[in-house]
């Protein structure tokens, strides 16, 4: 994959995560304890300590999310399966990891299509009705996700899946993969320890 392609994909994926992390940051900002009050507004108290905690929490989670996404973008899933086999991770764990990654990718694509549908139909609606439509669609999306998982299971069993993800030709864990995994691990450790 070209570098610009990877960056674009990373930004596209982060678009889903960043709003959630910001919301979490705001929650921490409002709830974290602290002494040094920076300002008060309508009963809300923001302290210096809460601001620092919220900032660091958001940055740490963003670093972990970015490193995870870069790993999945740079290391093919089939290489990961081979790597897990080599370090003797049990088959059920390998299969679940593979299916989770695949299922999330498929669901993300479904979600994108669903959101296109929402945008196409909600332009004329006022904000409260748009929110209501959004919640209804979220519920139907969840149901669709369940159906999707069943179809995925059917498709896999129809092709002879017996609980083990097969090793594909040329799918080998490479030195480059080890380097990327190590770099991501360092980011994880730094984000957690600091």
């Amino acid at each position: 994959m070209e570098r610009t392609g990877i960056i674009n994909q990373l930004l596209r994926r982060l678009r889903f995560v960043v709003p959630m992390l910001l919301a979490l940051g705001v929650l921490v900002l409002l709830r974290a304890p602290g002494e040094e009050v920076m300002f008060r507004l309508a009963g809300i108290r923001i302290t210096q300590e809460a601001l620092t905690t919220a900032g660091w929490t958001t940055i740490r989670l963003l670093a972990i999310a970015t490193a995870s996404m870069l790993f999945t973008l740079l290391v093919p899933l089939s290489h990961v399966v081979d790597g897990m086999r080599r370090v003797r991770i049990p088959h059920p764990v390998v299969s679940v990891t593979w299916m989770t990654e695949r299922f999330l990718a498929i669901l993300t694509s479904d979600l994108r299509r669903t959101m296109d549908g929402v945008r196409a139909r909600s332009a004329a609606l006022a904000l409260p009705r748009r929110v209501l439509l959004g919640t209804r669609i979220a519920a139907s999306f969840l149901l669709r996700a369940v159906a999707r998982s069943e179809y995925l299971a059917d498709a896999m069993t129809a092709r002879g899946f017996d609980g083990r993800i097969p090793i594909l030709p040329g799918a080998r864990w490479m030195r480059r993969d080890s380097f990327i995994a190590s770099a991501c691990l360092v980011v994880f450790i730094v984000a957690i320890v600091l």
Partner: peptide, 10 residues
């Protein structure tokens, strides 16, 4: 990879 899945599973 999708096309290879079945034969590899065999």
């Amino acid at each position: 990879e999708d096309v290879a899945f079945g034969p590899a599973a065999m």
